[in-house]
């Protein structure tokens, strides 16, 4: 495992924990898109089904379980525990606009036409667009709490580091997964506009 991959995973974990702590400590999920969090829970669920079929490493298993548990706790916090603080009015992105094309594409373009592989592909495609309801919500309300922008920063950083990881693996291991790489690049592009605002506005 290379340094980009480790830092990417740490950054991903940090993003998830920042969001969860923000909600728990402020007892509020204002400004957070519940729809994006549902999509991330769905992403982890459909991708980590291999927890039941093959063992890769202790690190791999632990991280998968942590991501899954955190994703479901976050959804629980938004839709159950702090439901009253959830701004459902502005979380109005239509999920079918993402789910329908992503489902279709995962059946058409995958490594092999088997249930687990199609679900894995679905999770990769879905992750690349899962943040859109959150970005849509921010552009609609025109505001985001500082802590929410930190969450998005680490989530975007994780994606950028994974690209560096793939460049590294391509050169050192001849490793290349087209589905993951293309989706990963698409996903990272969505964060570029946010990164620009984070750096320029964040300093004021």
């Amino acid at each position: 495992m290379n340094i980009f991959r480790i830092l990417g995973d740490v950054s991903h974990l940090l993003a998830i924990i920042i969001l969860l702590l923000k909600i728990v400590k402020s007892k509020s999920c204002a400004g957070i898109s519940g729809k994006s969090q549902i999509l991330f829970a769905l992403v982890f669920t459909t991708r980590y089904l291999d927890l039941f079929t093959n063992f890769i490493s202790v690190y791999n298993t632990v991280m998968k379980v942590v991501f899954l548990v955190c994703a479901y706790i976050t959804v629980y916090m938004i839709y159950v525990k702090f439901r009253k603080t959830f701004d459902s009015e502005n979380d109005s992105f239509r999920l079918e606009f993402l789910l329908v094309p992503v489902t279709g594409l995962s059946f058409l373009e995958n490594h092999s036409f088997t249930p687990l592989e199609i679900l894995w592909t679905f999770s990769i495609y879905l992750e690349s667009v899962a943040i859109l309801p959150q970005l849509f919500m921010i552009s609609k309300t025109g505001e985001a709490e500082t802590i929410t922008t930190h969450y998005l920063f680490f989530l975007g950083l994780y994606r950028a580091l994974y690209i560096a990881n793939w460049v590294w693996r391509y050169h050192t291991e001849n490793f290349y997964d087209q589905i993951a790489v293309v989706s990963g690049v698409v996903q990272t592009i969505f964060y570029c506009d946010f990164f620009y605002l984070y750096v320029t506005k964040g300093r004021q």
């Binding site: 991959r5 093959n54 290349y176 997964d177 087209q178």
Partner: peptide, 10 residues
Amino acid sequence: AAVVVGKDEL
């Protein structure tokens, strides 16, 4: 390049 399915990644 060899195409390997990257299931070890998160």
